[in-house]
Design a protein around this nucleic acid. Structure first.
Lengths: 148, 148
DNA sequence: CGCTAGATGACAATGATTTCCACGTCCAGG
DNA sequence: CCTGGACGTGGAAATCATTGTCATCTAGCG
């Protein structure tokens, strides 16, 4: 992975969006690696990739950075039984859902408007307020089905 | 909670449904307490309730029992950031979704036919097979909103 | 340049879950 | 009734992601 050179403008923008955040080399590095990862990664894996890129950063800081990014809404999060939380840069503003391959881990975002609307309606009908939802889809992608 | 007396027939039936399972007092007790819990409970809480009921059972066995029940499809499972996995007896055959109060933990099952259909269609359109989904809805129930 | 709130990171702590392993219990066959 | 093996049990130890602690560092401001 190429790590030299200046930050892509997009990453710089994202750094700026983190609330109450000071710009530090570590945070920039976290975002940079995250931006280079097409699929979900765990905090631990992120830490390993940063180390592999020659970035000196503590695991604690990785966790804190990811938390800050999550709060800022810049990351999507899924939970994996084996690896704990997995993070991925949110490609666009708003709320997304993913279909993740149980074999290879590749993810693909899906259009979930139907679900969004439904969830909202459920909130209205049940007397619950501030309804939030987590939706995780898993399956076996075409490539893995052929391969195995 | 009353624990004496024979098993309700329903629980006995459920015990029988667990595959590769021998019927033991511990497993029966787990199912009995589970059947008496209207809301989701953690394995730890289950263990505490069993102890409170005077049932001598190890935490390990509680974990093994809920695992077996989960595999047998007799339990619904949700994940909670604070408490880990939460279990609840599945009221009927098939797949259900729940709306859980973030304050008091009370749960309410919701009709999710729309989501089921949608998930199925997503599987067909994306080339993924064996698509499964996890949907967790959280909110604040009417009672908690008033109370706080 | 010097100050200070915020950031960092090595390390310890936490807490749910799993693994280990010695022991108990049930059942079939002798 | 005895015996052997398979399965179940449970306490303790191990695992492992995640969070807390705290001394040290540094970005950003005046």
């Amino acid at each position: 992975m190429i790590v030299g050179g200046g930050l892509p403008g997009e990453v710089a923008d994202a750094v700026r969006d983190v609330p109450s955040g000071r710009s530090t080399p570590q945070r920039a590095a976290v975002l940079r690696v995250l931006a280079a990862c097409p699929d979900f990664v765990s905090a631990q894996e992120l830490h390993a990739r940063l180390a592999a890129d020659g970035v000196s950063i503590g695991l604690t800081t990785v966790y804190r950075s990811v938390q800050a990014l999550e709060r800022a809404g810049l990351l999507d999060v899924v939970r994996d039984d084996a690896e704990g939380r997995l993070y991925r840069r949110r490609p666009a503003a708003g709320h997304r859902h993913y279909l993740i391959c149980r074999d290879c881990g590749r993810s693909q975002s899906v259009d979930a408007d139907v679900v969004e609307e439904w969830a909202e309606r459920v909130g209205e009908c049940t007397g619950f307020s501030a309804v939030e939802h987590i939706l995780e889809l898993t399956g076996v992608c075409a490539r893995c089905r052929v391969g195995s």
